[in-house]
Each structure stands twice: as C-alpha cells, then as structure tokens.
Design a protein around this nucleic acid. Structure first.
Lengths: 235, 235
DNA sequence: ACCTGAACACCGTTCAAGT
DNA sequence: ACCTGAACACCGTTCAAGT
C-alpha cells in the first residue's frame, strides 16, 4: 500500500484530510483563532477542525497551555522589528517595537492572558528579546540592567493587553463595569480616601495606549537611576 | 423565627443549611479557595459546598468572573498598610506595601491571574490605592503622574505574581519548562542573537522577588523624569 | 508508531417550574 | 421573590484497543 501522496480520498468535501503534524496542527490553531478567537481554540474544537478526535492531538501537543504558547509564538512573527535598525532616538524606536508587540496582543486578548501566565520562549519571542536588547545596548544601558529590563518591559506590555482584554467577543458589560469602577473611585469620600478624592477623574484619564507608552518611558528613564542588586548568576 | 445572628459560626462541621446571602456565598468561596485553590472555586463546586444547586448562586452573583473578583477583594483585607504611616524613607515604605500586596497574590496565583484580566475595585483595593497615593504624595510625586503610576505599580505586581503562578497545585513540570527556557536562551547563537548570547546567564539571574523589588524601584525612580502627556480628563 | 472511540470527571449558564 | 431540577452545550485528559 503506497497510498501516501495523492490518493487521499476526500470524505466530506473540502480538502483531503491531511496527515497530522505538529506544524499543521498549530497552523490550523492559528487560523481558528483568527476566525473565532482563542476561546474556541480548544483541543476538542481543534480536533474537529482537523477531522479527528481530541486524543489524536496529544501525540503532538502536551496540553492546551503548550498549544496556546505555540500559537502565540507563531503570531509573534508579525512583530515589526524594523525600528531596531532604523534611524532616530533609540528610546522612540524602542517604544515603537514594544508597541508593535503590544498591538498584536491587543488584537488577541485571550492570547495576552495566556502569555501572562506562561511567557513563551519560541523563536519569534527570542527575536523580539534580541531586538529590545540591541536598542538598550545602543542606549548605553548597563548589561545587567538591560537583562532585567527586557523582561519587565515585555511583561508590562503583555499585562496591559491582557487587562484591556474585554474583547469584541465579549458582550457590552464593559461599559457597565467601567461605570461601576468610576462610581467607586469618585464616590470615595474625602474623609476616608483623601488622596483618591483629591485626584478625582485624573485617575481615569488617558487611553490604555497613552498610559502604556508613558509606562514604557518611565521604565526606560528609571533604569538609568536604578542599579541591579548584587545577585548570583545561575550556573 | 429569629435565627438570624448567633447560628453563624460553625461552617466546618455539618452546619444546618444556612440561608443564602451574597456575603455568605463569598465567605464560603474564600474558605474553599484557601482549602483547595481557586481552580476549585467553580459555581458547581461552590454550590455543592453550600448544599444547593449552581443555579441558585446566580441570584447573588452575576457570573464566575464577578465571584472571583469578590474573593480577591476579600483577600485584600490582609494587605499590610502600616508602612503608609510609619517612619523612614517613603520609597522603602512604598515598596513594602507593594510587596505585601504581591506576596498575597503569590500565595494564590490563580487569583493573580484573574486580577490581571479584570482588576477589582472593591473596598480593600480602594484602601490599597489610597495608601500608595499617600506615599507618592509624601514623596512629592506630581499628582497627575501619581494617578497613572498607582495603576502601573499594582499591575506590575499583579502580573509578576500571575507569571510565577506555577502554584503548588501544579505538578513539577515547572523545572522542565525552566530547563527548556534556559536551553533556548543559552542556545541562542552568537551569530543570530548576539545580545542574548552576550548576556548569557545574566538573563536568568535573580529571584522573582528580587526582580520585582528592582522593578518597583525603576518605576519609582523613573516617574520623576517622565511627565504625563497633555490628555483630556474624563467628565 | 501512530491514531482513536469511549469514557471519566468535570465546566458555565439558562429557564421553566416550583415554593 | 427566591430557589432549583434539569437540560444545553460545552471542556481536558487518559487509556485500552486498534491499525
């Protein structure tokens, strides 16, 4: 029986059922996420998409968390690293790279959430890390501080995306939540919460993006003034 | 029937089935989380604990996300705010408050994860915010910068706790993950990822807590050098 | 070796019906 | 008004058995 290549009988209609491979599974998972959101990228749903049973996937993927991590790294291929080698102020260029990363996560909030829980370390994440480090190097940030700052910068972007993850797939209870939040903050009495009361609506000013960019700058500016403690290096 | 007050105490040993109240439900949820972790605080499991069906809970709680938010705020009662009014350097005291918050989340990683997705705004969270703002005020941080920095500081602590959320309830696949991560970083070739290669093991130095404290200091030091953009205030 | 049917042990949420 | 049985529409993961 050499029915390996062309003689695949299409059972349903669509494409001939392809052989399962890890790459194929992840590619299908990415498609599924783009089409229906990460919530739908479950083992069962994905298996259905691949015309098989969920148990089959476990030959190629350890569990759902690993699947989602692989999907994320795949998505990270789209991060725009061109500012790394562009002209201009290194801080600006660094923030541009970081915003490129974050914008991607804003588009797939579920992925941001999963990235907070378990940061990926695939190829594309490594490329992003390298790019950020190159810019910090160019900016003259001390190596040991740069080593810790990359993590903080990326984690900050990830967390911000995850927080504003009330995606388009969710219904409009966001507005409601926001009202409640605003009411809570504004209702803080002058007596019990004087600082909150003093700041008032300024606590809620700015868009997530504006705050994010500001936060990146705070971190970049702060690193010059904050030495890393003396700490043993692993191995 | 005035069985309202005294029969409240024993939840441990088969109590008479108490009337459902929102507070009672949340208190039971907190107990359940302390005993079995947040993963087990599901509508169904909680209902079982309360000797009723899951549908009954929906009279008092909108959904699982709201339930978890309520549990978190309850837990936040334990944050140690005493450094706010203590003696000493305001930066140090601020970091102590922030670490008290973060340590709590480290103990209940699932909660940290849910806090990243939807920051709570209950009473205790308001108290924490007030405390942080008071210290920033004492430190002479400009009000509009302080208003944005509180959020960043708390979010940074939350995200760090969530990331290191490979809790005690998970099995030991963490070690394995870490090995893989280290291998990925160290295997980055000098040619393709020169900065990563140059930093080598320094990228992995320090404990989560050491990095967290450092990050707090970077933010606190950076805020003095980073003005907030001109942005409209809501309302 | 690779694949899978079937099972185990769960989920959140809704709704019609009861008290 | 409050409560609930039952149902709907899902989950992740394992494992013995097949090819």
């Amino acid at each position: 029986m050499t029915a390996n290549s062309a003689a695949r009988q299409s059972r349903r209609e669509r494409p001939a059922k392809p052989a399962l491979t890890r790459d194929g599974i992840i590619a299908t998972a990415v498609d599924l996420m783009r089409a229906e959101g990460l919530e739908r990228v479950t083992m069962r749903r994905l298996a259905q998409e691949l015309d098989t049973g969920p148990a089959s996937l476990y030959v190629y993927v350890r569990n759902t968390a690993e699947l989602h991590a692989a999907v994320l790294d795949e998505l990270l291929a789209e991060v725009d690293l061109s500012p790394v080698t562009a002209e201009g102020d290194w801080r600006e260029r660094l923030v541009r790279v970081l915003m490129s990363y974050t914008d991607l996560l804003f588009a797939y909030p579920g992925l941001a959430r999963s990235a907070v829980a378990a940061r990926p370390f695939g190829t594309y994440f490594l490329n992003l890390t390298e790019g950020v480090l190159a810019l910090l190097h160019e900016g003259g940030v001390a190596p040991d501080r740069a080593a810790w700052l990359v993590d903080v910068l990326l984690q900050f972007g990830t967390a911000t995306a995850a927080e504003h993850a009330w995606g388009p797939d969710e219904d409009g209870h966001n507005e409601e939540d926001w009202e409640a939040l605003a009411a809570g903050l504004m209702g803080a009495s002058e007596r019990t919460h004087p600082r909150i009361a003093a700041l008032g609506p300024r606590l809620l000013s700015g868009s997530p993006q504006e705050r994010l960019v500001w936060g990146f700058h705070v971190l970049i500016n702060g690193v010059a003034h904050t030495p890393v403690p003396d700490v043993p290096t692993p191995l």
